[in-house]
Design a protein around this nucleic acid. Sequence first.
RNA 1: GCCCCGGUGGUGUAGUUCGGCCAAGCAUUGUACCCUCUCGAGGUACAGACCCGGGUUCAAAUCCCGACCGGGGCACCA
Length: 515
Amino acid sequence: MLEERYPEALEAEGQKKVERKKVEETREEQLPPLQGAVEGKVVLRLPPEPSGFMTIGHAMAGVINDTYKRFYKGELWLRFEDTNPKKVKKVYYDSFRDGYKWMGIHWEHEKSVTADMEVLYGYARRLIEQGQAYACACPADRVKKLRFDGVPCEHREQSVARNLEVWEGMLSRKFKEGEWVIRLKGDMSNLDLSLRDPNLMRVIDYPHPLVGDQYVVWPIYDLENVVEDHICGVTHVLRSSEFHLALQIKLRELLGLPEVFVEQFSRFNFKGTPVSKRLLRPLVEEKMVTGWDDPRMPTIEGVRRRGILAEAIRQFTLLVGYTKTEHTFDWSLLFAVNRKLLDPISRRLFFVPDPVRMRVKGSPARAVSIPFHPTQEKFGKRHIPVAADATLLVPSSDVTAMKPGDLFRLMDLYNARLVSKGEGVAEAEFAGDELRYDLKKLQWVPDDSEKKAVEVLEPHELYKEDGSVNPDSLVVRNGFAEASLGTLQAGEIVQFPRYGFVRVDAPGKCILTHP
RNA sequence: GCCCCGGUGGUGUAGUUCGGCCAAGCAUUGUACCCUCUCGAGGUACAGACCCGGGUUCAAAUCCCGACCGGGGCACCA
């Protein structure tokens, strides 16, 4: 069995080097052996289309490839499948590079398919010369209808010479978009419609972000993919989206290219969070979210900003593995992994959401020192002065749940008894120092000039069960945190006891990672 | 419509290749308790599943057939 550990990626950004889990404590995730894999001879690839931002789904597929690569001591390609100039943009290339890098995935080789256009032209020409492809001038809707009916069009029987003439015309920009395409001479009666003379090359006269207007004839995915896998020497294809392989197998056969072991697994979906650009884009455009890096988004930038660790995504991926079964992960599965990684490395700071101003009559002046972490002493302590007859801020939800006369404890401070409560205020009285486990414990912040106003964003699912947009996917929680919050850097992740883990996004602004 | 691929507790998976060791394991979630100056982490216990219907067999989650449901493909997208 295959098992890999990645303690090196355990680190929250902006946080100084982090304590790693002991090896014995690390989960032992494993993946099944890769069929036909030979140590030192495995070549894998990550084939993103730079037409959108990288998502957690790409990251998970990346982890699977990277894990096998490491295990078999193979090589990994990062190959940008950018053969549709109308869809690709420069920023997206960087999104993938940065994202994979953040994930701790290393690739030995990188290329863009645009680098091999001449080679692809060569293969296309060869198919034409061999009489296995032809030029077609039928409009798209006619192609579709004839394909459905299983009827070949007149272009199918054109001479090779004529086909080559058109091909040259396409390359020399004699024809405009849509006038001519190159189609495979497949099998117009095959039950699998994807084999009924699919398109292979078409004209797209549009500037490409990498090569400008150098090319106007572009290959269709299946052709490009088959040729590229061969050029890269790929031995195993492990990819997420499911689709028909029949055409690719057919193309390899016609071009005399070796077979490749293909393992397909279903997409990584998360409950209430679409990963398709089709559903994500309108959210951005209609300002339902603040951008592609909104903490509710499944983009790498989004989950990262929320406080999900790269190591958590890695462990989670190996934990759930890959299957052909359609699945929708509950976010709690990922959160559980993340929480266990975060717990030992997150300092504790008091934060009081929706505060109530509570005066504690008869309370003595104190200067308490509270450890930043319950077990990790290296985090040290913070010192909080509390005046006599203190006025403290405490969560309103706790006050609401209590009635006058109830005894409770202010964590690490002293006990108190509720005397009365009103709108946003409460009166209590000092009730001793004895630490009792049966008392409800409240976090608190002195209501003095040292307190820090904080706005915490609480991300929730973007879509509801019924598929409609969740109007309450982002809750803004206001409150106050203790003074030491001011010492935190953006990017640091801490735990607000009795509230949850949060990542500092900006001064005075945090994002709830998860409870 | 046609063609592929799948269906194990609320969620995610293990087991299916070579039927018996599976009256189904693990994680998550929920509940209770223990521990702990957190509603976190850790510990213990409990709750909860083999899509349905036939068939083969001494024996089926596992093999066969048929429904049903889900995903993908049938683009001049990848």
